[in-house]
Design a protein around this nucleic acid. Structure first.
Length: 136
DNA sequence: GTTCTGACA
DNA sequence: TGTCAGAA
């Protein structure tokens, strides 16, 4: 996949990204502060975004429009690959494991609803309801 | 002309 | 989030 290097190659300044994503510079920088995206910098401290960064911003924008806040977006966008020691130590004892199972399922459901096809009227509540209640 | 950081009606 | 200041 030498195509990845192209997508991860920092190319455009924030001005272009603004037009590409319809987000304001303020928002883009704000999301960066919350580590939703980590653009590269020029020697002059100018932000340089890659195609991947732009796609990521589009996903973020999508979630924002669906009423998800920063905390919620982090849960959905940031790699959730961190069940290392916990799963090993307490793998047969109920509570913790059961909770992770639930969160894992919730996470899956969220991704499906958020990125999968579309939402049927009346079923969108899970996002604005559950999610915002958990990560508000 | 653009972008950056910090701050605030 | 918008917007302004002051500097790069």
């Amino acid at each position: 996949m030498t195509d990845d290097i192209r997508r991860n190659m920092a190319l455009f300044p924030i001005g272009i990204v603004m037009k590409l994503t319809d987000l304001t510079a303020r928002q883009i920088r704000y999301y960066e502060q919350h580590e939703l995206i980590i653009p590269a910098r020029t020697s002059g401290n100018q932000r340089l975004y890659s195609f991947n960064d732009v796609e990521r911003l589009l996903e973020i924008k999508d979630l924002i429009e669906k009423g998800v806040n920063i905390a919620g977006i982090k849960q959905v966008l940031l790699p959730v690959s961190k069940d290392s020691e916990e799963a090993t130590v307490l793998n047969e004892h109920s509570e913790v494991k059961r909770k992770e199972m639930t969160e894992s399922q919730l996470h899956k459901m969220l991704k499906q609803q958020l990125f999968g096809g579309g939402n049927r009227p009346g079923q969108v509540s899970l996002i604005q309801g559950e999610l915002s209640r958990f990560y508000q």
